[in-house]
Design a binder for these strands. Structure first.
Lengths: 219, 219
DNA sequence: TCCATTTGGTTGTAAATACAACAGACTTGT
DNA sequence: ACAAGTCTGTTGTATTTACAACCAAATGGA
């Protein structure tokens, strides 16, 4: 486990826990690391597991099959991030998604039941990790709610305005950069890229926004 | 606090905790009940609070103002349900929404920091309540993700099919009832009611579904 | 520097949607 | 039983969108 300490330190789930405490914690949680090659299956649709995962190195993708049988990428999980924790804590027994590696990866697995019961020594960092977990799940919640707020608008114009307004709020300034390129923004807002591009230019012509690449300004 | 015991027993956050333990818990968490009249403001946009709420009786609405200043109802919180817990645990200091009562209500308030630190007696039900809280927040997550899956489809037809397919899966049967009337379903899927109604009939004409009121069947 | 690739903007057209207005079936309260 | 209100389906039209195809500018290696 020691070789992974560097990676573990920067995992948000372990924020505020010292290196040595992380070591005890790994034992206390009976965490185990598994190494995967590229494109290996980590968890399969329908699997019954009580574990959630943490990406220590590499990348995994969350895959979902729609009712036509088309596979679609729900999310990409980067280093330090969790996966399948929502299903574990929501008590969903059969995984509704599959998880596969997109690169060679080291993944840490923890049984969610270990996390919510105090260990015998009632370690102080145990309550910290629970706080961190609640924080992470609640943040995901906020992010999902925001996306719904944008995409539930009827027109592309309204979707763009509500998104840009929220970004301006977050930046605390009318001038801000967005973390998406045009295609990614269109995917995020669930609209057509070219239609969105045209609408952005209309908004500019109407003197409601200015933009240059990823730098935007609300007028 | 005793007069609220009946209501407290059916709060999901206290699932699996006995009546007497709930009483100790209320003390341990320093929970307080406040009575509100109809249409009173409970929490205001911009408020800075560490508390989340539980509706013991009555109803509250979560209100958000969009960038035009229009007020819009984000959610209605019924008896037994929590509100503002997402913001508390996500560490969002300034509330981005307002909370108002829609009927005379009794609301219970708990400081989220009390919940994540074990009380001195390391009470066994404390870990249960944390488990329950993680479960509730994770479930909200699942529900939001599902909604995004439906609404991110491009056409009304696809939105309907993916929604109905998910309901059929949930019911474990091709015949099932949905918890919405037409207007509510349209709002949920972010489409126009009349257009959706027309599309439902098209799907029926195409022999893909049958329906009668809220009873649907996938063919 | 050159070439290949990515990214962003433009346009035309067919398709889908929102919106409004209306009618029939069904509920509800008096 | 009646009136008022609600719910659902239907239709026509103006608006909006998706999609495809294309071009120009920027980017990034080799």
């Amino acid at each position: 486990m020691r070789k992974y300490l560097g990676a573990l330190k920067s995992v948000p789930l372990f924020d505020g826990i010292s290196e040595e405490d992380i070591q005890s914690l790994m034992t206390c949680l009976m965490a185990k690391v598994i190494h995967y090659e590229k494109n290996q299956s980590v968890l399969m649709y329908g699997d019954n597991t009580n574990h959630f995962g943490i990406v220590l190195s590499g990348n995994v993708q969350i895959i979902k099959e729609d009712y036509y049988g088309n596979r679609c990428i729900v999310a990409r999980i980067e280093e330090g991030m969790l996966f399948a924790e929502t299903f574990a804590f929501a008590g969903i027994k059969k995984l509704p998604v599959s998880v596969i590696t997109t690169t060679e990866s080291d993944l840490l697995f923890i049984d969610y039941r270990k996390l919510i019961t105090s260990c015998t020594e009632a370690c102080s960092f145990h309550s910290r990790i629970i706080y961190n977990m609640l924080h992470i799940v609640a943040m995901k919640n906020i992010i999902l709610s925001q996306k719904i707020e944008f995409t539930s608008k009827r027109t592309t114009r309204e979707k763009l305005l509500s998104y840009l307004w929220a970004e301006a709020q977050k930046a605390g300034c009318n001038t801000f950069t967005i973390p998406f390129n045009r295609q990614e923004l269109a995917d995020y807002l669930s609209v057509d890229r070219s239609a969105m591009s045209a609408e952005l230019c209309k908004l500019r012509d109407d003197k409601m926004i200015k933009f240059n690449k990823n730098l935007f300004e609300l007028l």
